[in-house]
């Protein structure tokens, strides 16, 4: 099967076959990162621009390492250092980058729809590295890769997603992705953090963490996004930790081989207790490791073949 998309913008536009191809490719590329010389020439002569309007450590590093391990030339721009500070619009910035003929633009932006917008203006492949509250497809794909690696399959699994669904692009992309692959997704959150109509994506909502955890094969804990918080969503971190934090106690009822995941960065002691984050079920660091392989796969599929 060939992957003939120009961009990776969201999970909605990927078919089941395309998702499988991405995960298979990522698995086969994972081994490169364990070699003594962690580099293959696949994308030699390709240029990847990493454009991060919004701060990011993990995703940005992961993308850069992925591109470098495939021998692409990489350029990295951040919002604060670029001409956005001088008042240039996103479209103008994109057109200017385009004029330098890059092969891919990896974009992180605080506004939902920003990658869609620039994808219309540039020939280069646009990879969404997270846009507002909308989508974070590479995170969802690396989560799916991690689960598939551990469980052997995705369909039929019970996936609980717990936390601030409303502000989470990770939640949206994971719901769409896992549901598409035949998993059952259940959400749990305070009602103040459940966006209207989220159940229409195929994921029922619970207000109590235990109901969602019950029988779960996978628990994805979402970050309380302090930087995005509006007032009045919950009274205090203390109460949040007590009622919605994932603790050893609230894990009771989950499957014996449950996987605990978190997209990072962690608020230890708030949405996840340290003993859970560091405990035997946690695959949080494996997610990070898989992130590099998954992003290598995306770059390879978008840039590697003839298009």
């Amino acid at each position: 099967m060939r992957f003939d998309k120009k961009d990776l913008l969201d999970m909605e536009s990927l078919s089941v076959e395309e998702i499988e191809l991405i995960l298979d490719t990522a698995e086969s590329l994972k081994e490169i990162s364990t070699r003594a010389i962690k580099k293959v020439p696949t994308l030699r002569g390709k240029t990847v621009v990493h454009f991060f309007y919004e701060p990011s450590t993990r995703t940005r590093t992961s993308f850069e390492i992925a591109a470098k391990r495939l021998s692409a030339d990489t350029v990295s721009l951040s919002g604060s250092a670029s001409s956005i500070v001088k008042g240039e619009t996103l479209i103008d910035t994109a057109k200017n980058l385009e004029a330098m003929n890059p092969d891919a633009i990896v974009l992180r932006h605080s506004a939902a729809g920003a990658p869609q917008m620039i994808a219309r203006f540039v020939q280069a492949s646009v990879i969404n590295a997270g846009d507002g509250m909308h989508a974070h497809p590479t995170q969802a794909l690396l989560d799916m890769m991690t689960v598939r690696e551990k469980k052997g399959h995705l369909s039929g699994l019970r996936i609980a997603i717990i936390g601030d669904i409303a502000h989470s692009r990770v939640a949206r992309s994971n719901i769409v992705g896992f549901v598409k692959m035949g998993a059952r997704v259940i959400l749990a959150s305070p009602p103040t953090m459940i966006p209207k109509g989220i159940e229409t994506l195929g994921a029922p909502v619970r207000y109590h963490i235990r109901e969602a955890v019950q029988g779960a094969d996978v628990i994805i804990v979402l970050r309380i996004q302090k930087e995005r918080q509006q007032p009045f969503l919950f009274p205090s971190e203390r109460e949040y930790a007590q009622c919605y934090g994932l603790t050893a106690e609230s894990l009771v009822g989950a499957k014996d081989d449950v996987l605990i995941m978190h997209p990072g960065p962690l608020n230890r002691g708030v949405e996840i207790a340290p003993e859970v984050a560091d405990g035997p079920y946690s695959v949080i660091l494996e997610q990070v490791a898989n992130g590099v392989a998954l992003r290598m796969a995306i770059l390879y599929l978008l840039l590697g073949g003839p298009r």
Partner: peptide, 19 residues
Amino acid sequence: TADGVMNEGVTATRLGLAG
């Protein structure tokens, strides 16, 4: 309205826009 930019509902939720 707060920081809302479109109608609150399914479409806003899917698009990740504040409602």
